[in-house]
């Protein structure tokens, strides 16, 4: 949420040197490297996993991390590394899908509110404020209470939770764009509202929304993992970092690896995105440009 400010600044700060400055920024580059590695791991999961994710085996339980099992095995003998790489896939997809849902619904509401103004705006803004009265995790939990547990419901819950921020940003961007001369020009030549919205307004506000969504993925991963941690998310056979960490807690004293590796995974995913955000901030925010 506190990211909104600098993103808006960033819109105006389009300078040719930005990219090269970003690449020289420690936070941005390190964050990018971690993120790319995680994405590569998720994409290549079927190739780098050593066993089937659900291959339980009563004979190979609690093996310490070693050559055969890089991250050890869990309480029913499953290979933690294989579950870790597939778990990364699930966690990243949850974060990404939730943001896509939030962005689409939020921007749609925001564009409508910002473009039509008056009572439409008042009602939609009020609705956003009402949604914002619920702390993010609580809103997601409430949606889970309604829909019941399950991974697809987690995506919906986290996505719905992010609607207000997208709506706010889309609305304010549209309101700025609406006043611009070329929109008036389009109206004068008889364009329909839909045409103005989609052809003229939307492309102009898309960039900040995508930046917001990208930076929101970290938070979305965290929320999704929290729900799974609380037992409301992933189904037992599905490897997911939050639920892997949660179910490993019972064996913490003897087999820390079952919980700790998935925890590190979630941490790295969020860290990479926060570092990218911080890097952008440092490069674009004038205070830091000295």
């Amino acid at each position: 949420m506190n990211d909104i400010k600098f993103i808006q600044k960033s819109i105006g700060a389009k300078q040719p040197s930005t990219i090269s400055r970003l690449l020289h920024n420690f936070n941005f580059t390190v964050g990018m490297v971690i993120l790319i590695l995680l994405i590569a791991m998720a994409v290549l999961a079927p190739l780098i996993a050593t066993t089937d994710v659900n291959e339980a085996n009563p004979l190979t339980t609690f093996i310490k991390p070693g050559i055969e099992h890089p991250m050890g095995t869990d309480n029913i003998g499953r290979d933690v590394w294989s579950r870790f790489v597939f778990g990364g896939r699930v966690s990243l997809v949850v974060g990404l899908a939730a943001m896509v849902i939030g962005m689409i619904l939020g921007s749609l509401l925001g564009v409508v509110a910002g473009f039509y103004g008056s009572w439409v705006d008042s009602i939609l803004s009020w609705l956003t404020e009402v949604l914002m009265a619920f702390p993010g995790i609580l809103l997601a939990l409430t949606v889970m209470a309604i829909l019941g547990p399950g991974l697809s419901n987690v995506i919906i819950a986290v996505g719905v939770g992010s609607i207000p921020q997208f709506m706010r940003m889309a609305r304010s961007s549209v309101m700025k764009t609406r006043e611009l001369d070329y929109i008036d020009a389009a109206r004068v030549i008889g364009c329909t509202d839909a045409r103005i919205l989609f052809i003229h307004v939307l492309p102009n506000i898309l960039r900040p929304l995508i930046v917001l969504a990208t930076l929101g993925i970290g938070g979305a991963i965290l929320e999704g993992a929290s729900l799974s941690y609380l037992g409301l998310g992933a189904q037992p056979m599905t490897p997911e970092w939050g639920s892997m960490l949660s179910s490993g807690r019972a064996y913490l004293n003897n087999a820390w690896w079952i919980s700790v590796f998935p925890g590190v995974g979630i941490f790295l995913a969020i860290l990479s995105i926060n570092m990218i955000g911080e890097g952008l901030n440092e490069v674009i925010d004038p205070v830091n440009r000295q």
């Binding site: 960490l245 949660s246 919980s259 925890g263 979630i266 941490f267 969020i270 860290l271 926060n274 570092m275």
Partner: peptide
Amino acid sequence: IAGISVPPFFLGL
């Protein structure tokens, strides 16, 4: 930045 990125349930663990 690292501190902000640690999930509370992982830190607690």
